[in-house]
Design a binder for these strands. Structure first.
Lengths: 133, 133
DNA sequence: ATGCCTGCAAAGCTTTTGCAGATGC
DNA sequence: GCATCTGCAAAAGCTTTGCAGGCAT
């Protein structure tokens, strides 16, 4: 199962790590805060500490297994780093998160960076939106 | 002077507020953390509290006098809301901040939001870059 | 067996808040 | 004079770290 992904990252396949992977892969919301993951573990009857959740998520991030985002300035959210790159829009009314990818935006970012004498290493794009009515 | 901008925002023209405006407008770096502003005040011999700096910056943000950004997840930086909208690229080697504006990116953001049934209210775009060599 | 992990509690950082005194108008 | 504002200290919220015991290999 997921033990492989962990071993590949040089991480022992411990119970907390496997459970956290399950939660991130689970069918629900795919963008979870550390607190969200912690609560989900408690709800599932698991006995893990919040500190472990933070440690594991940080390790997963370093290993490229999950991505960390900052939709608002106050806390991080994590999602499985499955598949190709995408950015996010966040509904300010409901908190709903929608993923999107726009080739043109991606391209322009490289152009803009190059025009200023830089190489583009990474970027963060978040659209704050509201449902149309 | 700047007293006008403050009055217009319904804020009394107090010494701390005027000094903070001066620092933000001053010739140096235009993207300052609360701590940066606080340090600059101390260096200038002013006797203000860090709490006041935070309060004033937050009030300025509400009044539209300054903008708050989160270049990294760990703290906010502030800049005067002078002139037209722009985004930022941050050099991961030096911390240098470069402002830019790209019409095409701006346009596509609206298109993408609309395509998902949303109105675009705001956005945050940060390019993480490295000087070319 | 041994070195990596974990839970707990404590600490760290940035930011906010309560309160009594000070200040602008 | 009165409401607003400020400094200080304390607290809050998120995240990290130290440590002693526990687990995977």
């Amino acid at each position: 199962m997921d033990t492989f992904a962990l071993k590949k990252a040089g991480l022992k396949a411990t119970l907390p790590r496997l459970r956290i992977l399950e939660i991130l892969e689970g069918g629900g919301d795919r963008h979870l805060s550390a607190e969200d993951v912690y609560r989900a573990l408690l709800d599932a009857g698991e006995d893990v500490g919040l500190a472990t959740v933070y440690r594991v998520l940080t390790q997963f991030e370093s290993a490229g297994i999950v991505e960390r985002h900052n939709f608002d300035g106050s806390h991080s959210v994590f999602e499985m780093a499955r598949g190709p790159h995408h950015d996010h829009m966040v509904c300010l009314d409901t908190g709903q998160v929608v993923e999107f990818f726009d080739e043109e935006i991606e391209k322009r970012q490289h152009v803009v960076a190059a025009a200023n004498g830089f190489d583009l290493l990474d970027h963060s794009l978040i659209l704050y939106v509201k449902r149309k009515r």
